[in-house]
Simulated assay, not measured.
Amino acid sequence: MADLKYYDVILKPIVTEKSMNAMSEKKYTFSVHTDATKGQIKEAVEKMFAGAKVAKVNTMNQDGKSRRRGATTGKTSKTKKAIVQLTEDSADIEIFEGL
C-alpha cells in the first residue's frame, strides 16, 4: 500500500437528499480512498477545510456492483464512504454552502 497524503484521502463530496439533510447536524459525507483509515480521514478534513474540527468519523465499505455486457460479467470497483461529524464550535465546510 502506498503512503497516503491528506490530499489523496478525500476524493469527492457526496451530494444526495439524505446527506443534505444531515448537514443541519454538521454531518458531511465524502467519498474517500479505499485504504484510508478514520484517523487519516479526520486529519484530511481538518487540514483541507480551515476551522473544521472533527468529532467523529463513520466509514462504510461498499462492494462493487455486478455488471454484464453481453455474455461477459464483471464487477465495478469497490468504494468507501465517510460521514464526518463536526464539533459544535467548528466552522462549516464551505463547499456545501451554495447547495
Rank of each mutant, 00 (worst) to 15 (best):
A2C: 03
A2N: 12
A2Q: 11
A2T: 08
A2W: 02
A2H: 06
L4P: 05
L4F: 05
L4H: 07
K5T: 12
K5N: 14
Y7W: 14
Y7N: 15
Y7K: 11
V9H: 03
V9D: 02
I10E: 01
L11K: 15
K12P: 00
K12M: 05
T16R: 03
E17R: 11
M20F: 09
A22K: 14
A22T: 11
A22L: 14
S24W: 00
S24H: 08
E25T: 08
K27D: 00
F30R: 01
S31L: 14
S31Q: 13
S31R: 10
V32P: 06
H33P: 02
A36K: 08
A36L: 11
A36H: 10
T37I: 00
T37G: 01
T37F: 00
K38L: 00
K38W: 02
Q40W: 04
I41R: 08
E43M: 01
E43V: 02
A44N: 02
A44K: 04
V45L: 04
V45Y: 02
E46F: 05
K47E: 07
F49G: 08
F49T: 06
A50P: 06
A50N: 13
A50C: 06
V54D: 03
A55H: 12
A55K: 15
A55N: 13
A55T: 03
V57D: 00
N58T: 09
T59L: 06
T59W: 06
T59P: 07
N61Q: 06
N61F: 13
D63Q: 12
G64E: 13
G64F: 13
S66W: 09
S66E: 15
S66P: 08
R67K: 15
R68Y: 14
T72F: 11
G74F: 09
G74P: 12
G74L: 09
G74W: 10
K75Y: 15
K75H: 14
T76C: 09
T76N: 12
S77Q: 11
K78V: 01
K80G: 07
K80N: 08
K80I: 05
I83H: 01
I83P: 00
L86G: 08
T87G: 06
T87I: 02
D89H: 02
D89A: 04
S90I: 07
I93H: 04
I93F: 07
I93P: 03
E94T: 10
E94Q: 11
F96K: 07
F96P: 01
F96V: 03
E97F: 05
E97R: 14
E97H: 05
E97T: 06
